[in-house]
Simulated scan of single mutants.
Amino acid sequence: MPATSRPRLAKSAPSRFTGRIEVATDVGAFLGDTRVRLLEAIDSCGSISQAAKRVPLSYKAAWDAVDAMNNLADQPLVERSTGGKAGGGTRLTDHGRRVIAMFRAVEAEHQAALDRLSQRFADMPGGDATSFQRLLRRMSVRTSARNQFVGTVSGLREGRVDYEVRVRLDDALELVAVVTRESAETLGLAIGSEVVALVKASSLLLVTDPALRLSARNQLWGTVSRIVDGPVNAEVTVDLSGGRSAVAVLTRESVPALGLAEGVRACAAFKVSSVILAVID
């Protein structure tokens, strides 16, 4: 009986940086991935409606994009005709094809540069392109909520109309949020998925007495690191574990009443309903 060899496991592809380029003018965006794909589809289909479906874009959005590009370009990229036996159509001009070729060439060079950067990053001690990309995506989130915590879903408890979601920040910290069933499905929440928990500073209550019993489910203990005094309110930062911090806004009178000062042990407490969950695609 011939000997059989165990199949080799395929090596996972190395992490790589990916990015998109955009050509902009003083009056706004001119070319990007979506618009170039629209131009390519027009060249292939000869029809704006078919090209819009292929991208996909709405018919109006496709024409708006074409009009904007033609207005910004020194020569038309797209020409259209109406009537006739064929019912009219849309075609790419020679200048449009040159613009596409130039964009794709720059895009290829851009990706080649990113690939070289990925390799250099991977060769560095602790280098991980994937984790670096996640960090950049997190940093790009813009919100008015002062408190932003990134964690993984560690628990899901289904109710009749909502879900209780536990978010593990690190070994010492865990948050609890309540979202509707529809929101949980829209976000695609699952155990182990990464989420961003947002909490407004005005939703945080500060407590210094460890014996005080609160109804708020989320209670994060730490040390006051900074107090910024204002004419009416004060902003208090509490350092937590793992280099995280929580910021609370409270009245000026509350600061001395609670005995708050730098170095004082304090708890940032907030309700589960005060937590907004977000997912970064």
Rank of each mutant, 00 (worst) to 15 (best):
residue 46 G to Q: 05
residue 63 W to A: 07
residue 255 V to G: 09
residue 224 V to T: 01
residue 182 E to V: 12
residue 158 E to Y: 08
residue 209 D to I: 09
residue 190 A to H: 09
residue 109 E to Y: 10
residue 280 I to L: 15
residue 124 M to V: 09
residue 216 A to V: 05
residue 124 M to F: 13
residue 76 P to V: 00
residue 212 L to T: 12
residue 235 E to N: 07
residue 1 M to K: 07
residue 255 V to R: 10
residue 222 G to R: 02
residue 50 Q to A: 15
residue 243 G to C: 13
residue 277 L to G: 03
residue 127 G to N: 08
residue 278 A to E: 13
residue 173 L to S: 02
residue 111 Q to S: 15
residue 78 V to D: 02
residue 208 T to M: 02
residue 81 S to L: 01
residue 135 L to E: 12
residue 225 S to A: 15
residue 172 A to G: 04
residue 267 C to Y: 06
residue 214 L to N: 14
residue 131 S to R: 14
residue 209 D to K: 07
residue 113 A to D: 15
residue 249 V to Y: 03
residue 149 F to Y: 11
residue 124 M to D: 15
residue 247 V to L: 06
residue 127 G to E: 09
residue 136 L to T: 04
residue 241 S to A: 15
residue 76 P to D: 00
residue 41 A to S: 14
residue 274 S to L: 01
residue 65 A to K: 00
residue 242 G to E: 14
residue 207 V to S: 01
residue 90 T to M: 02
residue 109 E to I: 07
residue 38 L to A: 00
residue 254 S to T: 14
residue 63 W to F: 10
residue 32 G to W: 03
residue 280 I to G: 08
residue 21 I to Y: 09
residue 223 T to M: 10
residue 54 R to W: 04
residue 244 R to C: 11
residue 116 R to Y: 02
residue 180 T to P: 09
residue 151 G to C: 07
residue 151 G to D: 07
residue 146 R to A: 13
residue 114 L to Q: 06
residue 100 I to T: 08
residue 227 I to T: 09
residue 47 S to K: 01
residue 86 A to M: 09
residue 43 D to K: 05
residue 77 L to M: 09
residue 190 A to E: 08
residue 67 D to P: 00
residue 265 R to G: 06
residue 33 D to V: 11
residue 75 Q to D: 09
residue 61 A to L: 09
residue 189 L to Q: 05
residue 100 I to E: 11
residue 44 S to F: 13
residue 262 E to R: 12
residue 33 D to R: 12
residue 72 L to K: 11
residue 187 L to I: 11
residue 266 A to Y: 02
residue 235 E to D: 07
residue 233 N to M: 05
residue 42 I to D: 00
residue 260 L to D: 05
residue 73 A to V: 08
residue 102 M to C: 14
residue 197 A to T: 05
residue 116 R to Q: 04
residue 226 R to F: 14
residue 65 A to I: 00
residue 18 T to Q: 06
residue 226 R to T: 12
residue 113 A to V: 14
residue 222 G to N: 04
residue 192 G to C: 04
residue 268 A to P: 06
residue 11 K to S: 09
residue 221 W to A: 12
residue 240 L to Y: 10
residue 175 L to I: 07
residue 196 V to Y: 03
residue 274 S to F: 01
residue 228 V to G: 09
residue 67 D to E: 07
residue 51 A to C: 10
residue 242 G to L: 08
